[in-house]
Structure formats: C-alpha cells, structure tokens
Design a protein around this nucleic acid. Structure first.
Lengths: 110, 110
DNA sequence: TATTTATATTGCAATATTACGATAATAAAA
DNA sequence: TTTTATTATCGTAATATTGCAATATAAATA
C-alpha cells in the first residue's frame, strides 16, 4: 500500500527510520559530504555541485532540514546551510549499540 | 520522476544511500533491534514480534539481506537470521567522519 | 519602485515502496 | 508419499518519492 504503519512502532523506531530515510539518497549523501568539506554553503553552490536542477536540490535540502540533519540561516539574499548536530546525535546512539554488539557477539547461527 | 539518477553519483555515495535507505523503515529498525536482543532468530519470530503479515516481514528481511545488513542460514525448515557485520562496517566510516567533523567544527554560519 | 538574484513552491509524470491475500516452494515429520 | 511447518514469491492496490518546468516569493540593489 506504500503506506508505512508507523503507528504500530515506537517513537524511537519511527524517528530513527525518518533520519535514516533522509540520508538514504545519493544526492543527500553528496550534500552532507559537501557540507563537511566546505563547512557551510548556500543552495546555489550545491546546485553547481550536483547534476540536479535547482528545484530538486531545494527539495532534498528541505527533506534534510525536516529530518533535523541540516539547518539554514538567512545570509543576505541567500540561505547558508550547514550540518545540524542534533539530528546526527540521535543516530549516533543507535549505531553505537550495533557496533558494541557486533564487537562482542558470540554463538551466532551465521 | 521517482527514478533516482544514481549514475550521476559515486559508487560510495550510492552504496551509503542504499544502506541508509534499507535502515530507513521502522519495521526494519525493529528487526535490527530484535536481532541485537536475541542474537539470532527465524522469520516466524519476527512475524510474532511485529504488527505485520508474514509476506511483509519476509519482504523487509529480503531488503535488509540485499543491502548486506543481515544474513540468513538454513536451520532445518527455518532460516536463522542475524546481523551482517559487513554492511554495518561500511556505514561506520561515514558516521565516524561526520562525528569527527561535528566535534571539531568552528566558524559555521548557523 | 523596478530589476536582479536566490530560493521555495506548485503541479505533474514516471517510478518506487509498502502491505497483504493467495499461492508456491522447500524441508522435516508422520 | 502425504502432511505439516516455514519462508518466499506473485499480483495488485494504495501511497510515496524523485525530478523538473513553470512560477512564486523574498531580499538586495540599482
């Protein structure tokens, strides 16, 4: 049905899924990587970096912003975007759990 | 168009996106969390855990398996699933970069 | 105020995802 | 070999995502 039964999962599960989903597109990975490289930049810079039209980039930025992974500040006529620590902090714990588990696991079937 | 222009991105970007996308659904988060809790289990156990029908769970397991995040071994009539270290290892570096960056960042616009 | 520049929104077509009933496939048990 | 148990696949409906042209909005500048 294309509709996720999110009401049947915990808030934590839904939140983690939303964050991972936002990261789950190569254009949005590229945007994150670019922001790490240049620290902060405006939408137009990303349009020049990526093989996508301006409305498409704007849409990807919106999704990253909604998920809490980036934030934007007005800077004259442009909007300056950079990573939002808060969003990444939320994912951190999840992957830490997994890594801790994988380092200590024993007696698995596979 | 609903079609991702993956040919315009690097292999690394596409691979990271595929992994994140696979994690980006609450049911698949729940499956991963369950596997951490019980170490390994069969599909039927997950069907009992989640509010989803068996074909739906099977489909989610397939996606996690295709992404390299879980693996399954035949164990009698059942299939025993557990986490696949390989997949998570690939994401680890990406988040490590982000966390290192966020810990040292300065002079941001926002 | 009119123009330019930068970004967002709308509308739409193409494609992908989610979910599940029905059914198939596979292997153990009777 | 038939039955039972377990998981996978098929088919399909509902919904979501991706991408972009066209357009709107907002702020700076002439």
């Amino acid at each position: 049905m294309g509709i996720t039964k999110s009401e049947h999962f915990t808030d934590e599960q839904n939140e983690l899924a939303t964050l991972a989903k936002a990261i789950g597109h190569p254009a949005r990975i590229a945007i994150i990587q670019h922001l790490i490289k240049v620290n902060s930049c405006v939408c137009g810079d990303i349009v020049n970096e990526l093989p996508l039209a301006q409305p498409t980039v704007s849409q990807h930025l919106k999704e990253l912003k909604n998920a809490g992974l980036i934030k934007g500040n007005f800077e004259g006529a442009s909007i300056c975007y950079c990573l939002n620590e808060e969003g990444f902090e939320k994912i951190k714990g999840f992957f830490k759990n997994i890594n801790d588990y994988l380092e200590n696991k024993k007696n698995q079937c596979c």
